[in-house]
């Protein structure tokens, strides 16, 4: 079974996924790295205007301590996917993007059975059609209900079961066929950071477990298609709601 991880060379996500797979004895056949492209000047200016304006026109205002939520504590430094590939001797295919004909031809030449999403950008239908079995993803919420962002937080805030899902990607957001879901007990998590840490470890372990089973059987487990109306799309949780959740967890 030929397995490839879709990532960026600078992404650390590629490394954490690869490490989770290695714990199940799975060594990917290679990484596919999409090149990092900085935004052009126009987008940088637009982004600057949208995110605070032009600093030279007005002096910066000192930030008040505690004015925003504290960042999650950082653990041991994780090497980038490129560093990990080098130290582990994993083959790398560099492509300028994941959409052009040239890139798709190079990726097709890999003759992949399965891709694993590991920090790449948005994956379009032509790319998703390449691997024989599909492109797998780990999701930090129970599908189909919890699609989108911050779903572990949303599950806890809504007082529902937390869990994770391993599914195939399609062009929608978390709408691809479900391969497996698992409830995760997060009742002992006393902060959002702890919740996310536990859920992330659980989802990566679950992904590796399902992939190991696929390697063993040579085929996907039964797929459960999702209906659009069965799920809800969630977006980034606002800091005010995060504060409510932090208080509930603590």
């Amino acid at each position: 079974m030929r397995i490839f991880l879709l990532s960026h060379d600078r992404a650390r996500r590629g490394t954490t996924v690869a490490r989770a797979l290695s714990e199940r004895g799975i060594v990917p056949d290679g990484y596919v790295f999409e090149a990092y492209r900085p935004p052009n000047l126009r987008r940088r200016v637009e982004g600057r205007l949208a995110n605070g304006g032009i600093p030279v026109l007005a002096p910066p205002t000192p930030r008040v301590p505690g004015a925003s939520l504290a960042p999650a504590p950082s653990g041991p430094a994780v090497p980038t996917a490129a560093e990990h590939a080098k130290t582990q001797g994993i083959a790398v295919t560099h492509v300028p993007d994941l959409t052009s004909d040239g890139s798709l031809a190079a990726i097709r030449a890999l003759k992949a059975d399965i891709f694993v999403h590991a920090g790449a950008g948005i994956l379009r239908a032509p790319l998703l059609a390449i691997p024989r079995l599909g492109t797998m993803n780990a999701h930090m919420g129970i599908l189909p209900r919890y699609r989108g962002m911050n779903v572990a937080e949303w599950s806890r805030l809504e007082g529902r079961q937390t869990g994770c899902t391993v599914h195939l990607l399609d062009p929608g957001i978390d709408t691809g066929d479900i391969l497996a879901t698992r409830d995760i007990d997060t009742s002992e998590c006393r902060s959002i950071a702890a919740l996310r840490e536990k859920m992330d470890a659980a989802q990566l372990s679950f992904l590796a477990e399902i992939l190991a089973e696929i390697v063993r059987t040579g085929d996907l487990p039964p797929r459960q298609p999702q209906r659009h109306e069965d799920g809800r799309q969630y977006f980034t949780m606002h800091d005010d709601l995060k504060r409510v959740l932090e208080r509930r967890l603590s």
Partner: peptide
């Protein structure tokens, strides 16, 4: 007028 294009995060920064 200047506030329309510069230092737009002023309020959040001031807490």
């Amino acid at each position: 007028y200047l506030f329309q294009v510069a230092d737009r995060n002023r309020n959040a920064a001031k807490g």
